[in-house]
Design a binder for these strands. Structure first.
Lengths: 316, 316
DNA sequence: CGTCGGCATGTTAACGCTCACACTGTGCCG
DNA sequence: CGGCACAGTGTGAGCGTTAACATGCCGACG
């Protein structure tokens, strides 16, 4: 019976259908735990992430779950609250259990990255990372390369007549995220001054505070925000300072959250297909678990979508 | 050794510490699958949800995971894409496996509700539902009762001089959600006219369309939206119609998503503590799995937080 | 001083599967 | 017509735990 469940090639069609019939009649359901124990495989993946609520993480998780479901995998979730040694160790121990199956770690931040580094080589894993991947880790790493889009966004602002564009960064694994890199490159190529970057946390408040600082400087007329939530907060700070968006200041976000098109003004942002990223991760870990070679994945690159939050520089 | 791992009372302190020492030295880690097989228990819960990306769902999941982690449970996720029979059946089969452990279904919508109804009585489960719970299901149901807050919100608008309050509803399990009920009650109590409710889906676009219809009617000056995303879209529609918020029209949302306070104007909304809801669900399912009686949970009720999107009715 | 009741600890049958191997029968080749 | 290869099927030894039971030990009680 084990043979028909795992559809081995060596079963007579008659026998198979008979077994299937009996299975149906008895309402038999295989027990996953027993199957895992017996085979050593578990047909499940667990995703470790720093958060389940933030859009990028949640959407990636959704992509993973979607693909997992269609491939018959069970999916587990484990959050690492911080990159502190205790949290990281616990997460690593959790997923080191064979029952956790394959692991996909969402390493957009240092917490995920630390887990990835601490993960024993024997546990199968892939990672969703920032563009470029992580250094010093030999794992399959899949990412959305927004470097180009970040440069496009910056150039878009420059072409609008802005003398330079400011950047408020979100937490990232490397000090130099792809967003920041693309931004800097575009600025340098254009011979524009590269302002100091402000950093915000995941919480909207810290982004707001960065916005307040930016709003105080009359010289800033264009800002590239690390993500849409950051853009929201920066916009708020600008508003409170009496500076109109996009009249006085143009802003661009990253992610293109579902509501971005419905903002007032609608947000110019970079569309990131996190769901596709998640799906690709699942496909990759499934291949690794099956011992198949992993074809390099090519995700369509993020692209700038221009809406209403950017406008020509107002001469005054 | 099984005895020390499960800290049974009948072990000598010396023996225990010795075993512990050896365990540490060998780097031994118990195997979850084997443990589940042997004991019949799995120390894990799987949450079935219709979505992982929408704020209410994601935050509830976060609460569950948080509590699960601190109690040593592993958490699985299974999404039911729709309330169609096939999706529901697959989800039910998935969680019927003993390895799935306890189940917490997020039944804010019909998909979740259907799963709950179809779940065999033998599988331990609790549900996070709309206020009031589901009829015809005998399971522990935990919810945030926003009826009062909805009424408060409606009254707030009425007190501001609005003749009535329109409502755009989001999908719900019952035709009459608590939000809607509270709204209607407040309206009736005030002797105000009860307008027809508009319904939107989870997608922002449908909410936008509802907003467009509302914006076309000069009589609407106050609208209570089913959630913050809906409010966002309605606000956009109003803006496109040249109607100012809150000058011409006041709007209120539900959820109080992290960014709501940073909108422009900051959104008046009802704060829902989904994380606490999730935690409560985990506590409940853990108790059920342990065979302990379940104390009824009392979650602090959602409350209205007044910000900038509501203002006195403008007489014209 | 013989017994009996616990406490500690040793032992082993499940748990529900998978996988490797043994076995049977058939068609085909020489 | 014997032998062989192989498709199809039966069988049972694990897989890593748990829990029930068996055993050994000591002190207390009669």
């Amino acid at each position: 019976m084990s043979r028909v469940l795992n559809d081995s090639p060596r079963v007579n069609a008659d026998t198979r259908s008979h077994v299937l019939e009996v299975i149906a009649r008895l309402g038999y359901r295989p027990n996953r735990a027993a199957r895992a124990l017996g085979s050593g495989r578990s047909n499940s993946v667990t995703v470790v992430t720093a958060n389940t609520t933030l859009y990028g993480y949640a959407a990636t998780l959704q992509g993973i779950e979607e693909a997992a479901r269609s491939e018959g995998f069970a999916v587990g979730v484990r959050v690492v609250e911080s990159d502190g040694p205790a949290d990281v160790r616990h997460a690593v121990e959790h997923v080191s259990d064979p029952d956790a199956g394959g692991v996909v770690v969402i390493a957009f931040d240092t917490a995920g990255a630390e887990v990835l580094r601490a993960l024993p080589a024997k546990v199968p894993a892939v990672a969703a990372t920032e563009a470029g991947g992580l250094t010093g880790v030999s794992r399959s790493m899949i990412f959305l390369d927004e470097r180009q889009a970040a440069a496009d966004a910056t150039r878009h602002l420059l072409n609008l007549g802005h003398h330079t564009v400011h950047h408020v960064a979100i937490p990232s694994e490397s000090g130099t995220s792809a967003r920041r890199a693309g931004w800097r490159t575009a600025l340098e190529d254009a011979g524009a001054l590269v302002p100091e970057v402000l950093t915000a946390g995941w919480d909207v408040r810290s982004a707001y505070e960065a916005g307040v600082r930016l709003a105080a400087e009359r010289a800033v007329t264009a800002v590239l925000c690390g993500n849409d939530d950051t853009a929201l907060a920066v916009r708020r700070a600008l508003y409170e300072a009496g500076r109109d968006v996009p009249g006085d200041v143009s802003i661009i976000g990253f992610d293109d959250v579902p509501g971005a098109a419905y903002w007032t003004p609608a947000l110019t942002t970079v569309r990131m297909d996190f769901v596709a990223l998640g799906r690709a991760c699942l496909t990759a870990i499934a291949a690794e678990l099956a011992g198949e070679p992993q074809p390099p994945v090519a995700l369509s690159p993020p692209s700038l979508v221009v809406r209403e939050s950017t406008a020509p520089r107002r001469n005054n």
